[in-house]
């Protein structure tokens, strides 16, 4: 857990709002929400969210730091952009949701086993290895994310599709062994590391 994650909850104080403003991408927009609820009404997955966007924004203002950051709501966003299009105050709601998800991940507050978060992590690690996504390995990693037994089951279930893709040369079994990458992988990795350092330095501490 990051040391950014230590402070007490203070209700209806600006503290968490300020934290979001400083550390979350597009977070400075949250205070401009006028609680009309159009975003929540427009979200095609809204009813499956524990807290639809309008409520998330209100919780931020109410200082409910833990509840917001440990919520799986922002992970449910499919980036359909309905809310952005419809928001009368023109808040970039989709981006704020992703920003909150990123921040929650950074603080280590993501709910365990959250599928979107798991996939995102697998995707990132996969890509960082060779500088590009190895689709075979990505698929397999997803099959086996819940253990060996379910992985085999899932692989057998999709074997026909896999065979067809190999025949059509859309997927190569050779990729399993190393796979191809970009020219300067270590250069990319260095670049990303530097970017992460810069971002980390910009984060404000709230405690």
């Amino acid at each position: 857990m990051s040391d950014l994650n230590k402070r007490m909850i203070e209700e209806y104080r600006n503290d968490f709002l300020k934290e979001v403003e400083a550390n979350v991408e597009e977070g400075e927009w949250v205070k401009m929400c006028m609680q009309c609820g159009v975003c929540s009404g427009s979200c095609p997955l809204g009813k499956h969210w524990a807290h639809p966007p309008q409520e998330i924004f209100m919780m931020i203002r109410a200082g409910k730091r833990d509840e917001v950051l440990t919520s799986d709501s922002m992970w449910m966003c499919t980036s359909c952009y309905n809310c952005i299009v419809r928001c009368p105050r023109q808040l970039p709601i989709t981006h704020i949701m992703h920003g909150l998800a990123t921040y929650s991940k950074k603080l280590g507050l993501v709910p365990k086993g959250q599928p979107t978060a798991t996939f995102a992590e697998i995707f990132w690690n996969n890509m960082m290895k060779k500088g590009r996504v190895n689709e075979l390995k990505l698929g397999l990693a997803l099959y086996f994310k819940d253990g060996f037994g379910p992985g085999i089951k899932e692989a057998l279930r999709n074997k026909d599709l896999g065979t067809k893709m190999m025949k059509a040369k859309r997927m190569s079994p050779a990729e399993f062994f190393g796979g191809h990458g970009i020219k300067d992988v270590s250069g990319l990795q260095k670049m990303i590391k530097k970017a992460q350092e810069l971002e980390e330095a910009r984060m404000k501490k709230f405690d």
């Binding site: 600006n14 300020k18 205070k31 401009m32 006028m34 609680q35 209100m58 203002r61 109410a62 105050r89």
Partner: peptide, 14 residues
Amino acid sequence: FYRSGQKNGVIFTK
């Protein structure tokens, strides 16, 4: 003016 209040960090709660 409402937006001005929000911009300056006034918290509105129903």
